[in-house]
């Protein structure tokens, strides 16, 4: 479903359904709040630099933004906009952590996790996007091969950890998180996750 620049995928509705059903302790709202702050971290520098947001997509992989930063802003500004997402997440985590309280602690924890998770150098995440920009801006011809290799290595390492923890602690949420990561590995255009 498309409303203006906003595109809502069925996977997003399913994700919301699962979170709504299983939600406990405002987890759903904390996830959405952290994601929103993260995207604002991308959106504000993009707008300040004069970039255009082509679309916003809500999918099973979360909230992503399609933009024209590379063509209109250049590598440096795009890299800045990409890294501002995790930076803002971590910044808000620090900010929320200063205040004692149940909700602020949880928001701080979620922002921290969100920020660092997005820094993983995997395709579909900000870290992967940053790596891609750095490689491309330095004229590395095999950018996509390098990125794919790094992504596979990270995915395998994460996969081993997830499976080991799942077996040790009988925790299915970790393999589910791995599936989530794999889901993000679809070929895509210039997106900020």
């Amino acid at each position: 479903m498309t409303v203006g620049k906003l595109r809502i995928r069925a996977g997003f509705v399913l994700l919301v359904a699962a979170l709504v059903y299983l939600d406990e302790g405002y987890f759903l709202w904390i996830v959405f709040g952290a994601a929103l702050l993260h995207e604002l971290g991308h959106y504000i520098p993009l707008k300040l630099f004069g970039g255009r947001v082509l679309s916003l997509e809500l999918s099973g992989g979360g909230l992503s933004m399609e933009h024209d930063a590379r063509s209109s802003l250049g590598y440096g500004k795009e890299l800045f906009a990409v890294l501002m997402g995790p930076a803002v997440s971590i910044g808000f985590a620090l900010l929320f952590s200063l205040r004692d309280g149940m909700i602020t602690e949880r928001v701080a924890g979620m922002c921290l996790a969100h920020g660092f998770f997005n820094l993983l150098p995997m395709r579909g995440l900000d870290g992967g996007r940053a790596l891609e920009i750095v490689l491309e801006s330095n004229g590395v011809s095999s950018t996509h091969t390098v990125l794919r290799t790094v992504t596979v290595v990270c995915a395998v390492a994460l996969g081993i950890c997830c499976i080991a923890l799942a077996v040790l602690y009988r925790n299915l949420s970790l393999p589910l998180a791995l599936l989530y990561l794999l889901m993000l590995q679809k070929p895509e255009k210039a997106k900020i996750q």
Binding site: A93, A108, G109, L112, S173
Partner: peptide, 13 residues
């Protein structure tokens, strides 16, 4: 997981 988030927030503080 909410407890884990709280734990992370407390550790960060």
């Amino acid at each position: 997981y909410t407890a884990v988030l709280s734990e992370m927030g407390e550790s960060l503080r």
